[in-house]
Design a protein around this nucleic acid. Structure first.
Length: 500
RNA sequence: GCUGGGUUCGUAUAACGGUUAGUACUCAAGAUUCUCAAUCUUGCAAUAGGAGUUCGAUUCUCCUACCCAGUACCA
């Protein structure tokens, strides 16, 4: 959800300002490679109606070869290694970065040692001159190590005691002293790939990115990124930054996680996802949410239009979107509101569309019904539903006789004084054979009133016989859907099985 | 711990330094109906605490509290 929201804000911003929305796959951590994840992301965005201008072709494949439409290919960072290598070397040549030969074990030892002394080990201007790197080792030794081993990283040489002055579109002006920062790894020895920091800055520059809209977890890295733009001499074209607050769990504190969803019964993934361990997480799509509702609720989680409008189409969102209406604080996700959005979208859809969506549900339940009939039902029940499936739950008995009777309702309404009257009404119906909902309703109500029978008790008893429970559609509606012969048959069957 | 960010009803949010602090979701009550749902009406409910600036602070400044993030050869 959080990822989709970030993508959505980027998309809305780009479209609002006549820009392009580019997909770039940041897969520089070979240890965390997840098969199918890339395809999942593209499918999820497509479902949401977030269609990239660049980076992904019409078949939904990430583009590797440059073309007119995809000039910045390849768009997978794992395919851009030589590019990053070149820029990393530039940084070393200009004195902004250096080779470090410390092994993970050595660094671990440093951390342990510092910890024992009650301190935190930081690889920075205070410690770097005591460690094994191209700043401390003789040039020949460095040359040797570079050739003879593959065990080296490239680190950024953080300047000393410098105030980095930054501007964030959402948060305003921020200043940080470089002395609180460390010499971040730019190139990893482990998988011989750049880290996010290097790859991201290089690609944003090369791909002519103008705005970076990303999660708040990147805010602490912003000084490094500013410094990298400076080191490369790209400050003139440096993008503007906007750091989005995080999505928080509905109750308690902390960031929204997939566990919360499983626990509280709402999806946290746009599409259903099964991980390598075979655990499946619910998806909004599979749980019956409309993509429009999902996008709408995400848009309003941390952003507001400045008006009281709550329902937006994608085009309306694009029109209304602006980063200065984005909230600074984290937003707690509210599953109830999510359902409300879906309900609103469901009732907005026309009967034909909803009928088509309900068809598979009917089929699944062994019902064959013609479209015109389904449309009539849908028109009547759509206001009672949040999800398409609900329309079946609420009206299954107009398609198929109830499989059983609600015990509590039987206890309450299936009494001799009631069902004897229902049986009498059945005879009356067969005799008069009224056609249409209104005629049926008038006949029944008139008959009951004339005899001064208790309306509620008789009607509920009848509904119990027809629908299997005392709650549901109006009696006249039910009978007009199933027809008088079927209604009569159901009443007889109820009498036979419940006793009369 | 350190660094940075954040704080308006339970939740999402609105409010040129001047409002009875508004709206939506949830919840409750009432109306309506043969029941349920829907609908309509009403209601409950908030500026984290403390200083300061000001005629006046939700809004500006500082302090405290609490929450979040980062502190990886992850992104």
């Amino acid at each position: 959800m959080g990822g989709v929201r970030t993508a959505l804000y980027n998309y809305l911003f780009a479209k609002k300002n006549g820009g392009d929305f580019i997909i770039r796959i940041e897969d520089t951590d070979s240890h965390r490679f997840v098969p199918g994840a890339e395809q999942y992301i593209i499918e999820a965005l497509t479902w949401c109606g977030i269609i990239p201008d660049e980076g992904v072709d019409r078949d939904g494949k990430v583009v590797s070869v440059p073309s007119e439409r995809h000039p910045h290919a390849p768009y997978r960072q794992s395919e851009r290694k030589p590019i990053y290598r070149r820029y990393a070397e530039d940084l070393i040549a200009s004195g902004n970065a250096y080779y470090a030969f410390d092994t993970p074990e050595e660094l671990d030892a440093c951390r342990k040692e510092a910890e024992a002394a009650g301190q935190t080990f930081i690889y920075n201007q205070k410690t770097r001159m005591n460690l094994r790197n191209s700043l401390t080792l003789p040039a020949e030794e460095v040359e040797r190590l570079l050739v003879e081993t593959t065990g080296w990283t490239i680190r950024f040489k953080m300047p000393e005691n410098t105030i980095v002055k930054m501007d964030d579109i959402i948060r305003g002006h921020i200043e940080v002293n470089t002395d609180t920062l460390d010499d971040k790894v730019l190139w990893k020895r482990a998988d011989e790939l750049p880290t996010y920091h290097l790859a991201n800055i290089v690609d944003d520059h090369l791909m002519e990115i103008t705005e970076v809209i990303r999660g708040e977890e990147w805010l602490p890295s912003l000084p490094l990124h500013y410094l990298l733009y400076q080191a490369f001499g790209w400050t003139e074209t440096q993008p503007r930054f906007a750091h989005l607050s995080l999505l928080l769990k509905p109750v308690g504190n902390g960031k929204l996680s997939k566990r919360d969803g499983d626990k509280m019964g709402f999806p946290v993934f746009p599409l259903q996802w099964t991980n390598a361990e075979g655990e499946t997480s619910h998806g909004y799509r599979e749980d019956g949410y409309f993509p429009e509702a999902f996008v709408n609720l995400l848009a309003l989680l941390g952003w507001n239009p400045g008006t009281e409008q709550e329902l937006f189409t994608m085009d309306e969102l694009i029109e209304a979107f602006s980063l200065d209406k984005v909230q600074k604080a984290g937003a707690k996700f509210n599953p109830d509101k999510a359902k409300w959005f879906n309900k609103e979208y469901l009732r907005k859809k026309d009967d034909a569309t909803l009928a088509a969506l309900l068809m598979p549900v009917l089929k699944k339940n062994g019902v064959e019904a013609d479209k015109a009939f389904v449309e009539r039902v849908v028109a009547l029940v759509k206001e009672r539903a949040t999800f398409v499936e609900d329309m079946w739950t609420v009206a299954h008995y107009v398609f198929k006789a109830p499989a059983g009777f609600a015990e509590k309702d039987v206890e309450k309404f299936w009494k001799e004084e009631n069902y004897s009257k229902v049986l009498e009404l059945k005879e009356k119906l067969l005799e008069e054979n009224p056609s249409g909902k209104d005629a049926i309703g008038e006949l029944l109500e008139g008959y009951i009133r004339e005899r001064e029978w208790p309306m509620g008790k008789v009607m509920n008893c009848m509904r119990l016989a027809l629908a299997g429970s005392a709650s549901g559609l109006g009696i006249a509606d039910i009978i007009s859907f199933i027809g008088i012969p079927e209604a009569a048959a159901r009443i007889e069957r109820a009498a036979a099985s419940l006793g009369a």
